[in-house]
């Protein structure tokens, strides 16, 4: 029996450029299994571009992304095998039902017993009644739940979430928070990007503050809070992102 390495995702000197726009500028960080990294920053800071590069949706202009030790550019299939990306705006296949979406994703990720997993996920996410519905017949929140189910079906070792709670009802938010924590406790490395600072403060063990594509602060939640001398994350965020002359602080 082979022992899987400790899950991790490592971003080194990541640069993402859109023609003349520099979205991500030499960003480096690492998230190990069991850790939840909160990525925060103002609009246009490069969070989504970073997450999309990490998920393999976009190719970095420079730098590397390693998932479980596999370079996403060199061994993309191996790197993506344990990775899940849950976007803020779910894009679903218009002609696949809820169950068929999950079967397809299960097949793509080679999930051993997909039907058992699908039934469990549909029950957990309150989608059991909608198993034969098409995406256009679902509400915004239900589509988000389906996107979440697609991300969780293969029990990912690295979970990347971009505003995952958008559109969810209070019960769904509570359940999703539980899922995120459970994934981390199960040994997964989690990267969470959100503007909901109370959520980040509640769930994350580590924090990365990004502005104009660069890291302005990174470390454990307590370390960043202490470095910025803020009473809560909102103060820390505003201090770090509104001070144009702030020099990057890092504890890792």
């Amino acid at each position: 029996m082979t022992t899987l390495p400790v899950p991790s995702i490592e971003v080194r000197h990541l640069v993402k450029r859109y023609e003349k726009t520099l979205a991500v500028d030499d960003l480096s960080f690492r998230v190990s299994g069991g850790e939840i990294l909160g990525m925060v920053g103002p609009n246009g800071a490069g969070k989504t571009s970073t997450l999309r590069c990490m998920a393999g949706i976009l190719r970095p202009s420079a730098g590397t992304v390693r998932v479980d030790g596999h370079d996403l550019a060199v061994e993309p299939a191996l790197a993506k095998q344990g990775l899940a990306f849950i976007p803020d705006e779910p894009q679903l296949f218009p002609y696949l039902t809820v169950t068929e979406h999950l079967r397809f994703i299960g097949r793509a990720y080679d999930v051993p017993t997909p039907d058992t997993r699908i039934t469990a996920l549909l029950g957990e996410l309150e989608l059991a009644d909608k198993r034969d519905a098409f995406p256009t017949e679902l509400s915004r929140g239900m589509r988000q739940k389906l996107a979440i189910a697609c991300g969780l079906i293969h029990t990912p070792r690295v979970l990347i979430l971009d505003e995952p709670l958008t559109g969810l009802d209070p019960a769904g938010i509570k359940r999703m928070k539980g899922h995120i924590v459970a994934c981390a406790q199960g040994g997964a490395a989690v990267v969470l990007s959100s503007h909901l600072l109370h959520l980040v403060q509640e769930l994350c063990t580590h924090l990365l503050v990004v502005q104009r594509g660069r890291a302005v602060a990174s470390g454990t939640m307590a370390e960043v809070m202490a470095l910025s001398q803020g009473s809560d994350l909102e103060d820390v965020f505003l201090t770090l992102t509104q001070d144009e002359s702030a020099t990057p602080v890092s504890t890792t």
């Binding site: 949706i57 299939a77 894009q91 679903l92 296949f93 994703i105 793509a108």
Partner: peptide, 16 residues
């Protein structure tokens, strides 16, 4: 590629 394909197929372990 449709938006769904970009979002669901690109991050999957399906090779380019």
């Amino acid at each position: 590629f449709s938006p769904a394909e970009v979002q669901l197929l690109f991050p999957s372990p399906i090779r380019r």
